[in-house]
Amino acid sequence: MGDARNSIRDTLRDAGLAPGGELPPLILVACSGGPDSLALALAASFFARRGDYRVGAVVVDHRLQPDSAAVADSARGKLEQMGLAPVLVRQVSVPESGMGPEAAARTVRYAALDAVVEELGADAVLLGHTLDDQAEQVLLGLMRGSGTRSLAGMPAVRGKYLRPFLGLRREQTLEICRHAGLDPWHDPSNRDPAYARSRVRTEVLPFLEDKLGPGIAEALFRSSRILSADADYLDTVAAQSFEELRAAAPAGSGTDSEELLLPEAQLRNLAPAVRQRVLALAALSLGGSQPSYERLAAVQSLLRRTGSAGPVQLVGKVSVYRQPRAKSVHHGASSYGNLVFRKKSST
Rank of each mutant, 00 (worst) to 15 (best):
V71Y: 02
V299D: 12
E244P: 15
I27T: 05
S37Q: 00
E294Q: 06
Q134I: 06
E175W: 12
V204L: 13
S334H: 11
A152C: 05
A229I: 14
G310P: 11
N190S: 15
A333S: 12
A104G: 02
D67K: 00
G153P: 01
G34P: 00
V59R: 00
Y53G: 02
P184D: 00
S328D: 13
Y336M: 11
L17N: 04
R295I: 12
L208V: 05
G316K: 08
D114Y: 03
V116D: 13
R201Q: 04
S32C: 02
V315P: 06
V116N: 13
S198H: 05
L166V: 04
R169M: 02
R13Q: 02
G213S: 12
H331S: 14
S253V: 07
L12G: 02
V237C: 10
G332E: 07
Q81F: 05
L302C: 08
V299M: 04
D256T: 11
A273H: 05
K211F: 13
R246A: 10
A156K: 06
D133H: 03
P66D: 14
R63W: 01
Y336Q: 13
A229K: 12
S292P: 01
P101N: 03
V312W: 09
G181A: 08
V117G: 15
T173I: 03
T202D: 04
T255L: 15
P25L: 12
A72T: 02
R246L: 08
S228T: 05
L88W: 13
A85G: 08
S68Y: 00
A135Q: 03
P35D: 01
M1W: 10
S335C: 09
V71H: 00
E175M: 08
Q323R: 07
S228R: 13
L182A: 04
S334P: 09
V55R: 05
V29N: 06
N190K: 07
R191D: 10
A248H: 11
A333Y: 11
E203M: 07
E102C: 13
V278H: 06
D14L: 03
L79Q: 04
G159I: 11
V204W: 11
P184Y: 01
G159E: 02
P188Y: 01
A196P: 10
D3S: 14
P184K: 06
T11W: 02
V320Q: 02
A30F: 02
D10M: 09
A271R: 13
D3A: 12
T173F: 00
A135I: 05
H186K: 09
C177G: 03
Y53E: 01
G34C: 02
S150R: 14
E175H: 03
A135K: 14
D61I: 10
Q323I: 15
V87D: 05
A219H: 09
L227A: 12
